[in-house]
């Protein structure tokens, strides 16, 4: 079987790390937007009610925590020098 060609772009690992940082930066923005979504719902008796709102908010919260956990695992600790901070 022929060997697959080597990857064209050599800085894959560090590229991935920089995009991970982008994701870490983006996560709170997504979270803030998610928290504000219930404000669009109708209020009072014809609205979804606090039970549903509670489920939605805690679900969103748990999802954010899970995402933060996964991202924190994927980030490499030794890359803390921020040589590529500007990108």
């Amino acid at each position: 079987m022929p060997k697959p060609p080597p990857p064209l772009f050599l800085g894959r690992a560090s590229y991935r790390q920089r995009r991970l940082r982008d994701a870490v930066r983006l996560l709170p923005v997504a979270g803030a937007v998610g928290c504000m979504i219930p404000l669009l719902w109708p209020r009072g008796a014809e609205g979804p009610g606090n039970g549903l709102a509670l489920l939605y908010l805690f679900g969103l919260w748990a999802g954010l925590i899970a995402a933060a956990f996964i991202l924190s695992r994927a980030m490499r600790p030794e890359d803390d020098t921020d040589a590529a901070e500007g990108e």
């Binding site: 219930p38 609205g47 039970g51």
Partner: peptide, 24 residues
Amino acid sequence: MLARIDASPIADWSQPGGRWVGLT
């Protein structure tokens, strides 16, 4: 518990938007 919440005095989602954003 969810059924009890729906039957309680705080069953309705009636959150004022300003306070929600402001307090966050």
